[in-house]
């Protein structure tokens, strides 16, 4: 990303992907992307990165840890 345009664009990519950028800024970004395959690849893979992480599953609190937590808090463990 040697061009200054690319550096400026980089700072705006999250707001662009989240639809928070102004219409003018969007037009400016899209004009740049049309002529800059490197930035286009960064935008595409940044979007994919965000989507991938949105689907990252969470863990249940392990049974033993849950039991110990409720014991420490002096509360009755409810059934799962």
């Amino acid at each position: 990303m040697p061009k200054p345009d690319c550096r400026q664009l980089l700072a705006e990519l999250s707001s662009y992907l989240e639809g928070e950028a102004s219409p003018e800024l969007c037009r400016e970004i899209e004009r740049h992307l049309a002529g800059c395959p490197n930035c286009q690849a960064v935008v595409d893979t940044l979007g994919k990165t965000i989507s991938l992480y949105h689907t990252l599953p969470e863990e249940d609190v392990p049974d033993e840890a849950r039991r110990r937590l409720w014991r420490v808090l002096h509360l009755d463990l409810p059934p799962r």
Binding site: R7, L10, N38, A41, L52, T55
Partner: peptide
């Protein structure tokens, strides 16, 4: 200021990759 990207490769993912691919999850 943001560090300039080093990788410009595009890659494809399927929506259920994270659920199916243990290696990808661990990389993430």
């Amino acid at each position: 200021e943001f560090d300039p990207p080093k990788y410009f490769v595009d890659w494809s993912v399927r929506p259920d990759d994270v659920l199916l691919d243990g290696e990808l999850r661990s990389v993430m």
